[in-house]
Design a protein around this nucleic acid. Sequence first.
DNA 1: CGCAAACGAGACGCAGCGTCTCGTCCGGTG
DNA 2: CACCGGACGAGACGCTGCGTCTCGTTTGCG
Lengths: 191, 191
Amino acid sequence: MTAAATTPRRRSERARVAILEATNELLHEHGLEQLSIEAVAARAGVGKQTIYRWWPNRAILIADALLDRDDLAPAPPADTGDAITDLGRWAGDLAASLGSPRGAATLRMLTAAATAHPETSRRLHEKFSGPLQDYANARLAAAPELRTTPSQRRNAVDAIIGGMVFRVLAHQELTRRGATEMTRTVLRGLS
Amino acid sequence: MTAAATTPRRRSERARVAILEATNELLHEHGLEQLSIEAVAARAGVGKQTIYRWWPNRAILIADALLDRDDLAPAPPADTGDAITDLGRWAGDLAASLGSPRGAATLRMLTAAATAHPETSRRLHEKFSGPLQDYANARLAAAPELRTTPSQRRNAVDAIIGGMVFRVLAHQELTRRGATEMTRTVLRGLS
DNA sequence: CGCAAACGAGACGCAGCGTCTCGTCCGGTG
DNA sequence: CACCGGACGAGACGCTGCGTCTCGTTTGCG
């Protein structure tokens, strides 16, 4: 192995962006099942080979495209000093995003894509659910008023996030107020 | 409209069962995306038209097949008089089912199928998540030791079920013990 | 017994798959 | 600047599976 040096990967940024945009448009126009690589290539003004060269399969392309517009998870709120208040606001913001028609459609398609391939699931967790868990867990851990164990925190966090995700996947209503109330209910069970 | 009477629907039970069994086998052998109607017809020893005659699309066939073996949701436990104990056991049983490799695969495929078509989602809710919500909600409502409002119950129930479903969909571990603890954490937040 | 609807089988045209082969473009190296 | 090689747009290729259709056969209800 002298040098694996010569790798002048001249990937075209123009093509990359056009493909992700076309995929997003087609997903929201016609849905997950109707999405064909041929249609993406045509709309993006790109050869099919260029898609196959950089994305190993449909599910990963879909996840990349949907996660590329990363407005699904809003920024955490300011720290007021009270964890229940902060997490209630955070959950409300998240519910406003996930509960909107576009957010709900995105979450459902991401979930379906993640079903197909564990690698896709890992990527979704890394970019979406992981950061959510991390913020909520950290905010709980930093709350002196709630003495919690790590597993208690993990349970509470998963119940809150899972409860919201479940409502979206089940096509049930998810409102800002409902999410805040659910969060308060769950957190009141801690110490 | 004289009489829409003459509807001697002589649907073949043999074919119906063979199709659902073949679909289940192929789903667990090759996964959701690889499932083709042609393969189902071939394995079931059935004409394609017989499938198209009774199932309007792939997603509904998949949901019907997976829900046909309705061992996903275990029977509710005996009533011990203490709601937290009962619901902790119920959640533990449910986690044992959903957390098993086969149960997890079934839940993931059902979720993905439900994404595609609202009708499929409705059917899944009717046969799976609806009864779960109904049992847990009723058990909570019948608990004199926990004075709860309907919306509190709904929030707690969705947090518990959603938390479990979330862990399965995220390919995270879901154990009997973990589910029981999560349930207790959530329920302790109720008055 | 006789009809009509459902059945198994499979042919049909079509859409999209994933691979391949063109000739062109273009950025990094010498 | 000139060159080189890999990525590019375009699209042909064979193939699989779609959903529809047409056979001739079976089967249950009247």
